[in-house]
Design a protein around this nucleic acid. Structure first.
Length: 1334
RNA sequence: AGGGCUGUAGCUCAGUUGGUUAGAGCGCUACACUGAUAAUGUAGAGGUCACCAGUUCAACUCUGGUCAGCCCUACCA
C-alpha cells in the first residue's frame, strides 16, 4: 500500500523525517558509503555562537547544504566538519557589556583570567539554538566533532602557520611576518586598532556633521618666504582646511601640491577685521571669496558682514616655490616642544596627493593622525610632535592618548575627548556642552588664526561595534606582508570559479590587485596569542610554531632559571598515529618540581624568594641603573618610604620580583608601589601584564602618579596607610587558610590553568604571557602582547581543523597536519555571504597562497544579503527581523529553502517575504503532494505495486507516457548541467516548471481517465509506471534543496517494495533518497520530436479553449469538428500522433486538416529579419513592407520554385523560402484563433445529438458532485433516479449507458417524483437527482 | 570620491550570440473546469524595458553619459 494523506503539512513531514534521519543515522551513512578517495571537499566557515542565528544563516547554510547533498548523490564523499568561531572583538565587547566594565577595567576590576573565562563561557551561549536551527533547517554537518578555534590544537596549528610566514622571506630577504609602526584606524571606545576588514563592515562609514576649520598659519619672514612679502609688516598667512580641528595642536607641516598654482590674496580676517594676506590655491579662491567682492575697498568691511572684500595681489606661485617656507606653530604645546621640532617642524612640504577639489589646496599635516600625513612627514624628514617618551628612546607620545583624550599637557584642551561622541550621552546633551573641535575653533577665532569655522557634512569611519568614530592613531603592529604576494594571489584567484563571477573578478580581484599588508595585531585578551617572544630591546626574537617547540624553549628557559616550571612538562608526546589529544600530554598540576624545585631549595634568604638567583643577577644591573636615574616622582616617593618611616614598614626600592623590577616593595605586606610617569599611558599593555604577574605571585600593586606625589604628598601617605592596614589583615587570613600559601613563592609561580586537572594548559592569555623564554644570548624574551586578528583563525581552518601531527612535524613534512588533511585540501567548494569577500574568502586565499602557493578553494558561491520584503536591511531597531524558528515551524524547512533558492539567484539580495514561501508551498509542494496522493489513491485501488524488474519498455508505452518521460530526462540533463555550474536557481526553476506545467497540468490531467477507468490493464500499468518514475526522479532531483519532503515521498513510494528491493539489491533498496545514486541523464529517453509535437498539441488545445471561451461554449459540450490549416506535411504527421489527445482534451469529435489544395487556406508572409537583415541592410524596412503584402500566389511561387526576385528601390534581391515566415490567416467563415504559426478553427454548430451529449456530460458531473458531497467511496456502486425534466429526457435516453458507466451506477431511472438533491443544470433548469449506494 | 552589481507589469523575477506581438508566477477582474481541490484552465486589465545620446537596416539587448538603489573600496585635508 502507498500511504495516503488528507492534507499537506510540511512541518509535520519535517519532524517525521528528522527523527528518521537521526534514528537511522542517514547523514553518517550518506557520507560513509562513498569511497574516501572520491572526495568532494567542503569547508564550513565557522559561525560564532555568541549571537542568535538569523534567517540569513538559513540562506547561507541552504546554499552550503544543497551542493554537498547534490554531490553526495553524485557519488562523492562529502565530509562536513562543523566548526565554531570563538574569538574576537564581538565576544569581548559582549562580555564587557554584560559585566558592566570597559577595556580599561580588565586587569583591574577583573583579572584577565576571569575575563577570558567569561568569554569562554559566553562564546557558546547560543550553541544549542544553533544546533537546533541546524537540525530543523536540514543542514547536514558533523556537529559532534567540530573544530573550535579556542582549543589548543587549533591554536598551535595557527601558530605553525604564522611561523611559516615568519620564516618565509621575500626575494630581498624580508620576512612575511614583521613588526611595524603605522597610522591605523583605532577605536578609543573599543580600545583597539581595527583591521581593514573591520573598517569595511557595513554601516562603518556614516555621514556626520563635524566642525571644519580653515586656519591661517602665520608665515615667518626669512629667505625662503621673502618673495611672499610686499613689505616688512605685512601679515602673510597660509590657509589650510581641516575637518578635524582637534589635530591642529599636532600640526607640524603644511603640504602643498608642487605643481599647483597658488595666489596671495589681500583681505581681512573675517572674525577680527585685521588686514591679512592669505595664500591658497588659485583654483580655490572662488571657494572662499565671492567674485562680486573682488577689489572692493578693504575698509568698507565690518565684522559680521557677509561681503568680504579682497584683492588678488600675487599670482603664479608654484607649490614647489612654497616648499621650505616656515610658519609659526598654530597652537603650541610647550611640553611637546623640542629643539629638533623647532628646527625642522612647521614648514611647507610637498605632497603629490594634494588636490584642489576641496579646501584650500594646502593640507594641514599632523603625522600621528593621518596615514598620508605620516608618510609625507617621514619623507620630508619632519619630526613628529608629542610628549617626550622617557623610557623608549623612540618616537614621542602623541598629544592624544589611547582613550581619545588630549593629554593633560595640551593647554586649554588637556583632558578633553577629541570627539564629542566619546563623552557619555548625558554630557553630550547638556546645553552647555561644546565639542572640542568647536573650542579649538573658538580659540583660533579669538587669536585671529581662523578664516572660517563652520559645520561640515561628510562621511567618517566608525567603529563597527561601538558605533563611535574611529581615530587614526600611531600603533605598533605585527603585519603579514601580503603585498609581497599580491601578484601571485591575483594569479591564483584567476583559477577559482566564483559565483557570481563578478565577485571574483571585480570585487575580490580588484581588492587583491591593491593589496595592503595585513595588520594582524589586536590589543585584546580573548584570542589567539601571537607566538612571538622578544627581548625587551627587540634585538632577539623567536616565533614559536607548536606547543612541542614551545615546550622545548621553556626547558631551555628553565635551565637558565627564567621560569618556575614547565607547564608543558612532560614534553607532549602524542601518539604516532596522530590521534592523540594534545591536551593529555600536559601536566597541569605543580607537583613536579623539576630542576626548578631543586634550585629553589638552595636559597633560603628572603632576598631571593621573589625571583630566581639567575634572574636576580641579570636584573641587578638594570635595578642599579634605575636607582641612579630615578625620576622626580620616584625620588619623592622614596623620601616618604625609606627607613621604615611609614608606620615602620620596610620598603625596598627597585627590587626584582619574578622578571620585573618593582619601583618600591614591601615584602612583608606583599605590596608593590609603582610611580607612574606619563610613559605608562603609552604602554598600558605592558603595565597590565606586570600587574597580573605580580598579582599571580601574591603581590598587590598600587600606582601613584608623579603629580600626586609631587603635589599631594599627604593624600598619598594617607592612602598608603589605609592600604597597608588592609593588606596586613588580608595576608593574615590567607596564611591561616593556607599556611603554605604565600610564604612559599614556588607554589605561586606555578602557572595556573583554567582547566580541571589533567586537561592541560590553556594557551590563552594571561597564562601564555607568563611564559618567559631565553634568547640565544641568554636574555629573557617576553611574549609580544598582541593577539592576532580572528580572521586569521578562520582563514587557517583548512589546516587547524585537523591539528598538527607531531610525527609529520618531526619528519619535516611540508604539511604536517593530521589526517584526513591529505584528501581534504584544497576545498572543492565553499559558500558564504558576500560580506565575507574581504573576510573569510580573503584570509583562506591569502594564507593558502602565501604558505603553500595554492588556492584554498576551487569553487565558491557568495550569497547576497537577506533583506526584509521592502528591500530594507533587517535590524533589531527597525523591528523587521525575521525569526528563523518561526518561519521554519510555520512553513517547514523545504518550502523556506526552496523559496530562498528559487526566487532569485543566491548572490542577489533576497527580499524575504513569507508570501513567497506560501506560494512555493502551494505551487510546488502542493502540486507534487497532490500528484503523489492521486497516484497513491488509484495505485492502492488497483493494487498496483511498482516492480523494478518488470517495467514496460518505453517503446510500448503511449505517446503521452513517452512524452513525459522525455521531458523528465530533459529535466535531468538541464538540472544536472545547472547544478554542476552551481546555478541552483536555474535548477529549481526547471523542476518547478516540470512539476507544474508538464507533469501535473498536462500528463496527469490528460491521464486521469486512464487511472480511474477499468481494470489494471497494460495501458494502465504503463501509466502507473510512468507516473512512478516521474515522481521518483523528481524527488531525487529535489532532494538537495528540499531534503525532507523528497525523502518523505521517496519513502512513501518505496515502502511497499523495500523488502524486495533490498533482497534483490535494486536501485530502490536505499532507506533514504539521500543514499541513492543520482539518476543519469539518459539521452535515449529524450525524444525532441515528440516534445515538439506535444507542444503543438498543447498550443492547439489552448487555442481551441480560447475559441470556446469567446463563443461561450462550455468544454463539456462536445463539438463536431476542429480544423487545422497546415503549411507542410511534417506538421500533419506530427499532429496526427497526438490527435487523440487533442480531441479528448478539447472535447471535439474529429480533426480535419486544411491544406493548400483545399483552396480555403489564406497565407500571409512576414519578413524573417534575422536572415534578411544581413542581406538587405538599409533596404530592410521597405522589404518588410513589401513582403507583408505578398499575395497567396507570390508566396506559393516562392515555396514552389525556391526563389523569388523582388525589386527594392532599384536593387533586385532574390528571396529564398527561409527569408519568409509564412503563417495562415483566419479561415473565413470559421471561428478561429492563432498563435504564431498555428491556427485553429472550430466548428461551433450544435446538433441535437451534440446537445444531448453535452447534457449527458453535465448530468455526469452533477452526479459525481453528489457522490462527493455524500462522501461515497470512489468505488461505491450507486443507483440514480433523475426527475423527468424535458431538458434531459433525450440526453438520458441516448446516453444513459454512458452516464451509468461514468458514475458507476447500477441503475439509472427517470421518475416523475424524485426526492433527492436539487441540482442546477443551467441557468434555466433545476431538477432533482437522487443518488444512493446500491 | 572610486569600483562592482542592480533598475523590465502593482509585487517577485525570466528574457539565450541585437531581429519586429517583451514573458512567467503572484495579486486584481470575469468566465469556465473540478472523480488531484489550500488546486486548475481561458480571457482581460496592467510596460515609454529608469532616463538621455550614440552605433546599426534593426537596441530591453551593444557603447557612452545621467539618475536611483544596494554592496564594496577609501581618513584627499
Amino acid at each position: 500500500m502507498y500511504r495516503e494523506f488528507k492534507h499537506l503539512n510540511l512541518p509535520v513531514i519535517d519532524a517525521e523525517i528528522r527523527q528518521f534521519w537521526e534514528d537511522e543515522k542517514i547523514f553518517e551513512r550518506s557520507v560513509e558509503q562513498r569511497p574516501a578517495e572520491n572526495a568532494y571537499v567542503f569547508y564550513e566557515g565557522p559561525p560564532s555562537a555568541n549571537g542568535k542565528p538569523g534567517i540569513h544563516h538559513v540562506m547561507a547554510r541552504t546554499v552550503k547544504d544543497l551542493f554537498c547533498r547534490y554531490n553526495t548523490l553524485k557519488g562523492f564523499r562529502v565530509a562536513r566538519k562543523g566548526g565554531w568561531d570563538t574569538h574576537g572583538l564581538p565576544i569581548e565587547l559582549q562580555v564587557e557589556k554584560e559585566l558592566g566594565i570597559t577595556k580599561e577595567d580588565i586587569g583591574k576590576k577583573i583579572s584577565v583570567e576571569e575575563y577570558n573565562a567569561a568569554c569562554r563561557s559566553t562564546v557558546m551561549r547560543y550553541k544549542d539554538l544553533w544546533e537546533d536551527k541546524t537540525r530543523r533547517m536540514g543542514y547536514w554537518a558533523d556537529l559532534d566533532n567540530p573544530y573550535i578555534t579556542f582549543e589548543n590544537s587549533y591554536i598551535e596549528t595557527v601558530w605553525y602557520m604564522l611561523q611559516r610566514l615568519y620564516k618565509k622571506q621575500t626575494a630581498d630577504g624580508q620576512s612575511f611576518l614583521y613588526k611595524g609602526f603605522t597610522i591605523q584606524p583605532f577605536s578609543p571606545a573599543a580600545g583597539t586598532g581595527l583591521s581593514s576588514h573591520e573598517l569595511n563592515m557595513p554601516g562603518t562609514y556614516k555621514e556626520v556633521t563635524d566642525i571644519s576649520a580653515v586656519a591661517m598659519f602665520k608665515v615667518k619672514r626669512d629667505a625662503a618666504s621673502a618673495p611672499l612679502f610686499d613689505d616688512e609688516n605685512e601679515d602673510v598667512r597660509i590657509m589650510a582646511w581641516t575637518t578635524t580641528p582637534w589635530t591642529l595642536p599636532s600640526n607640524v607641516a603644511l603640504t602643498v601640491g608642487p605643481k599647483i598654482e597658488y595666489v596671495k590674496v589681500k583681505t581681512l580676517s573675517p572674525y577680527t577685521g585685521a588686514p591679512v594676506s592669505v595664500v591658497l590655491a588659485k583654483a580655490r579662491v572662488a571657494g572662499y571669496f565671492n567674485a562680486e567682492d573682488e577689489n572692493q575697498p578693504l575698509d568698507s568691511f565690518k565684522i559680521g558682514d557677509k561681503k568680504l572684500p579682497y584683492q588678488v595681489v600675487k599670482e603664479g606661485i608654484k607649490g614647489s616655490a612654497l616648499v621650505g617656507v616656515r610658519y609659526e606653530q598654530l597652537l603650541p604645546t610647550p611640553a611637546a616642544s623640542t629643539p629638533e621640532l623647532e628646527a625642522k617642524g612647521f614648514q611647507v612640504i610637498p605632497g603629490d596627493w594634494v588636490t584642489t577639489e576641496d579646501g584650500t589646496g594646502v593640507v594641514h599635516t599632523a603625522p600621528y593622525f593621518g596615514a598620508d600625513d605620516f608618510r609625507a612627514c617621514k619623507t620630508a624628514g619632519i619630526p613628529f610632535i608629542g610628549l617626550p617618551n622617557e623610557k623608549n628612546s623612540g618616537l614621542p607620545f602623541p598629544l592624544v592618548d589611547r582613550q581619545g583624550k588630549f593629554v593633560d599637557e595640551v593647554p586649554e584642551f588637556g583632558g578633553r575627548y577629541v570627539k564629542s561622541e566619546y563623552y557619555p550621552i548625558e554630557i553630550q546633551k547638556d546645553k552647555d556642552f561644546k565639542p572640542t573641535d568647536l573650542l579649538v575653533g573658538l580659540r583660533l577665532k579669538e587669536d585671529n588664526k581662523a578664516f572660517k569655522i563652520e559645520k561640515y557634512k561628510h562621511t567618517y569611519p566608525h567603529c563597527w561595534r561601538t558605533e563611535k568614530p574611529v581615530l587614526y592613531y600611531p600603533l605598533d603592529s605585527w603585519f603579514v606582508r601580503a603585498s609581497a604576494a599580491k601578484d601571485r594571489l591575483s594569479e591564483l584567484n584567476k583559477t577559482i570559479n566564483w559565483h557570481p563571477e563578478s565577485t571574483g573578478t571585480g570585487r575580490f580581484g580588484q581588492w587583491l590587485d591593491n593589496l595592503q599588508d595585513w595588520n594582524l595585531s589586536r590589543s585584546r585578551y580573548w584570542g589567539i596569542p601571537l607566538p612571538i617572544w622578544r627581548t625587551e630591546d627587540g634585538e632577539e626574537e623567536i616565533c614559536i610554531g607548536s606547543v612541542m617547540e614551545l615546550s622545548g624553549e621553556v626547558e631551555k628557559a628553565l635551565k637558565a632559571g627564567m621560569m618556575g616550571s614547565n607547564p608543558f612538562n612532560p614534553t607532549p608526546n602524542p601518539s604516532p598515529s596522530g590521534e592523540g589529544d594534545l591536551h593529555s600530554g600536559f601536566s597541569a598540576n605543580g607537583d613536579d618540581l623539576g630542576e626548578d624545585g631543586r634550585f629553589m631549595e638552595e636559597f633560603r634568604g628572603d632576598w631571593f624568594k621573589t625571583t630566581s638567583p639567575e634572574r636576580w643577577a641579570y636584573l641587578k644591573e638594570f635595578a642599579r641603573g634605575m636607582r641612579k636615574n630615578q625620576t622626580a616622582g620616584e625620588a619623592a616617593m622614596w623620601e616618604l618610604l625609606r627607613d621604615k618611616q611609614l608606620d615602620g614598614v620596610k620598603f625596598r626600592r627597585q627590587h626584582s620580583i619574578e622578571n620585573f623590577i618593582a619601583d618600591f616593595v614591601s615584602l612583608e605586606h606583599k605590596l608593590v608601589v609603582e610611580v607612574d610617569g606619563t610613559i605608562h599611558d603609552f604602554q598600558p599593555e605592558y603595565d597590565q601584564i606586570r600587574t597580573e604577574l605580580l598579582n599571580a605571585v601574591g603581590f598587590e600593586v598600587i600606582r601613584f602618579k608623579n603629580e600626586d606625589i609631587l603635589g599631594h604628598k599627604y593624600k598619598v601617605l594617607d592612602e598608603l596607610r589605609i592600604i597597608l592596614k588592609r593588606r596586613k589583615k588580608e595576608l593574615e587570613t590567607i596564611t591561616n587558610q593556607n599556611p603554605q600559601g604565600t610564604k612559599d613563592f614556588k607554589a605561586n609561580t606555578q602557572i595556573k590553568s583554567p582547566f580541571p586537572q589533567g586537561e592541560g594548559f590553556d594557551l590563552h592569555r594571561p597564562f601564555i604571557d607568563e611564559v618567559i623564554l631565553i634568547s640565544p644570548s641568554g636574555r629573557p624574551m617576553y611574549r609580544e602582547t598582541d593577539l592576532i586578528d580572528v580572521w586569521f583563525d578562520s582563514g587557517a581552518m583548512p589546516y587547524a581543523q585537523w591539528g598538527l601531527d607531531y610525527e609529520k612535524l618531526k619528519n619535516g613534512d611540508d604539511k604536517p597536519f593530521k589526517s584526513p588533511f591529505e584528501v581534504s585540501y584544497p576545498a572543492t567548494f565553499i559558500a558564504e555571504g558576500v560580506d565575507q569577500t574581504r573576510g573569510w574568502f580573503y584570509t583562506l586565499h591569502a594564507i593558502a597562497g602565501m604558505v603553500y602557493d595554492s588556492v584554498a578553494f576551487k569553487n565558491v558561491v557568495s550569497n547576497g544579503l537577506v533583506l526584509d520584503k521592502n528591500g530594507e536591511k533587517m535590524s533589531k531597531s527597525k523591528g523587521n527581523v525575521v525569526d528563523p524558528f518561526e518561519t521554519l515551524s510555520e512553513f517547514g524547512a523545504d518550502a523556506t529553502r526552496w523559496y530562498m533558492m528559487s526566487n532569485a539567484n543566491p548572490w542577489d539580495n533576497l527580499k524575504f517575504d513569507t508570501g513567497g514561501i506560501l506560494e512555493t508551498r502551494n505551487k510546488l509542494f502542493g502540486t507534487l503532494y497532490n500528484t503523489y496522493n492521486f497516484f497513491a489513491l488509484y495505485a492502492n485501488l488497483d493494487g498496483f505495486k511498482h516492480d523494478e524488474f518488470n517495467v514496460m519498455p518505453y517503446e510500448k508505452r503511449s505517446e503521452l507516457d513517452r512524452w513525459v518521460i522525455s521531458k523528465l530526462y530533459s529535466l535531468v540533463a538541464d538540472y544536472r548541467a545547472a547544478m554542476d555550474d552551481y546555478d541552483v536557481t536555474k535548477a529549481c526553476r526547471a523542476i518547478e516548471d516540470f512539476v507544474d506545467e508538464h507533469l501535473s497540468n498536462w500528463y496527469v490531467r490528460l491521464s486521469r481517465r486512464r487511472f480511474w477507468k477499468g481494470d489494471l490493464n497494460e495501458d494502465k500499468t504503463a501509466a502507473y509506471q510512468t507516473l512512478f518514475e516521474c515522481l521518483m526522479v523528481t524527488t531525487q532531483l529535489m532532494a538537495s534543496v528540499a531534503p525532507f519532503f523528497s525523502d518523505w515521498m521517496y519513502r512513501n513510494l518505496t515502502a511497499s517494495i523495500k523488502e524486495q528491493a533490498k533482497a534483490k539489491n535494486t536501485p530502490l533498496r536505499h532507506d533514504s533518497v539521500h543514499l541513492t545514486d543520482l539518476v543519469q541523464p539518459d539521452i535515449s529517453k529524450i525524444d525532441l520530436a515528440l516534445e515538439t509535437r506535444m507542444d503543438y498539441a498543447q498550443r492547439i488545445c489552448s487555442l481551441a479553449f480560447s475559441i470556446r471561451k469567446r463563443e461561450k461554449i462550455r468544454v463539456r459540450q462536445p463539438l463536431q469538428k476542429v480544423l487545422l490549416p497546415v503549411l507542410d506535411e511534417a506538421f500533419i504527421t506530427a499532429v496526427d500522433e497526438v490527435k487523440a489527445l487533442i480531441l479528448s482534451e478539447i472535447n471535439v469529435k474529429e480533426l480535419q486538416y486544411v491544406t493548400d489544395s483545399s483552396g480555403l487556406l489564406k497565407k500571409s508572409a512576414k519578413a524573417n529579419f534575422k536572415t534578411l537583415g544581413a542581406k538587405l541592410g538599409q533596404d530592410m524596412k521597405d522589404a518588410a513592407g513589401l513582403i507583408a503584402n505578398f499575395s497567396n500566389e507570390q508566396i506559393a511561387s516562392l515555396e514552389k520554385t525556391g526563389a523569388l526576385e523582388v525589386n527594392i528601390k532599384g536593387t533586385v534581391y532574390t528571396l529564398s523560402p527561409e527569408d519568409l515566415v509564412v503563417v495562415t490567416e483566419d479561415l473565413p467563415g470559421w471561428k478561429s484563433a492563432s498563435d504564431g504559426s498555428i491556427t485553429v478553427a472550430l466548428d461551433v454548430n450544435l446538433t441535437e445529438e451534440l446537445l444531448a451529449e453535452g447534457t449527458a456530460r453535465d448530468l455526469v458531473n452533477r452526479i459525481q458532485n453528489i457522490r462527493k458531497d455524500k462522501d461515497f467511496n470512489v468505488t461505491d456502486r450507486i443507483a440514480v433516479r433523475i426527475e423527468r425534466h424535458p431538458a434531459i429526457v433525450s440526453a438520458v435516453e441516448q446516453f444513459g449507458a454512458y452516464i451509468q458507466d461514468e458514475v458507476l451506477a447500477n441503475s439509472l431511472v427517470l421518475a416523475d417524483l424524485v426526492e433527492g438533491e436539487a441540482v442546477e443544470l443551467n441557468d434555466d433548469v433545476t431538477l432533482q437527482i437522487e443518488v444512493t449506494v446500491d
